[in-house]
Each structure stands twice: as structure tokens, then as C-alpha cells.
Simulated scan of single mutants.
Amino acid sequence: MAPGLLLTVPSWGHWLRRPLLHVEATRPYPLRVMLGGPIEGTGELPVPPCAPDGILRFPFFRSEEWSWAGPGTPEERSGGVIPLRAPFPESGGRLKAWRKHARDGTLPPVLLPYLTRVRKWLVVDGHDRLHAALLEGRVQPLLGLWSIFEELVPEDERARLRREGSRIAAEVRLRARPGEVDAVNRSLLREHEPVHRLAVTRAFPLRGGAAAWKAQVTAWRKGSGATVPSDDWAAFVSEPG
């Protein structure tokens, strides 16, 4: 993963922006997310994005089962890429223009903020560019953005042992694959960082609280005409116990 750019926004805290590479969708939800849904924590390292073709499947409302071994499409797994709107038709002029950029290798990156609560990436800018890259069979540049929590790494015996273990693992890896010097160096540098920058998802109060939010989503449901199973909707709008 390429070095990132640390941004500080007044009243919004610290943010990290970093180029990303997508991976194959092979990971189910991790254990910390599986147990009854997402749980509160002090942050985590983002998982790589997977299943970018998830932007072609846009339901107005979707319910997911937080199951370790249950069935599910790739974008429903940890690292899935989730669109915020339906894709435009392939015959449209805008998409045709972006497909030419894809063939020429001149597509600007897609901006993906990270949601730690569900370990997913959202497309906030670049739906058409990502769609064009998929149609052309090209790798689309991805730019991740996430709010961070800085955690000091304690200088204790546990940290010393972990670093010693990483050094031994690096030696073993280089003996087997001498060409991976850069990757090994990056891993060792991470192990010796005095601060871990963990991803967090920030939330801000809504004027009117839960009642105002429920009124907004109920109005949206009526206006959108989306078909939502009654049990799923009841669970969605229910107040946490």
C-alpha cells in the first residue's frame, strides 16, 4: 500500500487519504463483526476493497446476515464496495467517454471512504469511472479516505517480542522470496511505528434525534417505492435497546 496523506480538518479530526489496490473477495465477515453485528471499538486497520463490480448492483434497501459461513455475494463480505446510486446505461455518452479514458489509461481515481462499522467502502465519487473500467477490463485507480484514531504503541515486553517475531519472519520470507525486499521493509517499518493510525467511523448528532431520523427514512421509503420486507424494516427503524 502506497504512503498516505494525513489531513487535519477543524472539528472533523484527522483523516488519512491513501491509494488502494482491490483484492479478490475471499474473506467473510471477521469474528468481531459476526457476533450479533458490528461492535464498538477504538479503531482498526482498513481491509482492502474487493468486488468493485458491486457498483452494478444497487438495491434501494438491503439486509445482510452477519454470518461467518453463510451465503452472500462478494460485495456483502468484508471489504465490499457499495454504490450510492444505480449505474447509468452502458449506451450513455458519459460512460462511453470514460471508457475511452479507461482504454487510454487516463482515468482519475475513484474516491472510497471506509465505514469501519461494517468494513465496507462507499463510492462517493467515480461511479461512472469505475463502471467504465469494469467494462473495459481495466484496473481502476482507487483512493481511500478514512477518519483515524491515533493510538500510542506501548514500549513494553510484548511489543519487543512482537518486533523480534516480525524480524525473524522477515528473514524467513526473504530467504524464500528475495525479490520481496520492499514489501518486507514496509512490514518492518509498520512494526516499529510509535503510533498506530486506526480507522474509525465518525457520527454527528442529527437535529431532532432519532425521531427526526425515523421520519426522514419513512418519508424516503414512501417516495422511493422501494419494496422492503416488513421484518427487516421494523428492525431497521427500531431504537437500540
Rank of each mutant, 00 (worst) to 15 (best):
D53T: 02
D53I: 01
G54E: 06
I55G: 04
I55H: 04
I55N: 04
L56I: 00
R57T: 10
F58H: 04
F58D: 01
P59K: 05
P59E: 03
P59G: 03
F60P: 13
F60A: 14
F60N: 13
F60K: 12
F61H: 10
F61K: 09
F61T: 06
F61N: 08
R62M: 10
R62V: 07
S63K: 08
E64L: 15
E65N: 14
E65G: 15
E65I: 07
E65P: 15
E65M: 11
W66G: 03
W66Q: 04
W66H: 04
S67G: 13
S67T: 11
S67P: 13
S67Y: 06
W68K: 05
W68L: 12
W68P: 15
W68C: 07
A69H: 15
A69R: 14
A69K: 12
A69N: 15
G70H: 13
G70W: 13
G70M: 12
G70Y: 14
P71E: 06
G72A: 08
G72Y: 09
G72M: 07
G72L: 08
T73Q: 10
T73Y: 09
E75W: 02
E76Q: 11
R77A: 11
R77T: 08
R77G: 15
S78D: 05
S78E: 10
S78T: 03
S78F: 01
G79L: 02
G79I: 01
G79S: 03
G79Y: 02
G79R: 01
G79H: 03
G79P: 08
G80E: 04
I82Q: 05
I82S: 05
P83I: 02
P83Y: 02
L84M: 05
L84C: 05
L84E: 05
L84V: 06
R85V: 06
R85H: 09
A86D: 14
A86V: 09
A86C: 10
A86I: 08
P87W: 07
F88S: 11
F88E: 11
F88K: 11
P89L: 00
P89I: 00
P89Q: 00
P89V: 00
E90P: 15
E90W: 10
S91T: 15
S91I: 13
S91G: 15
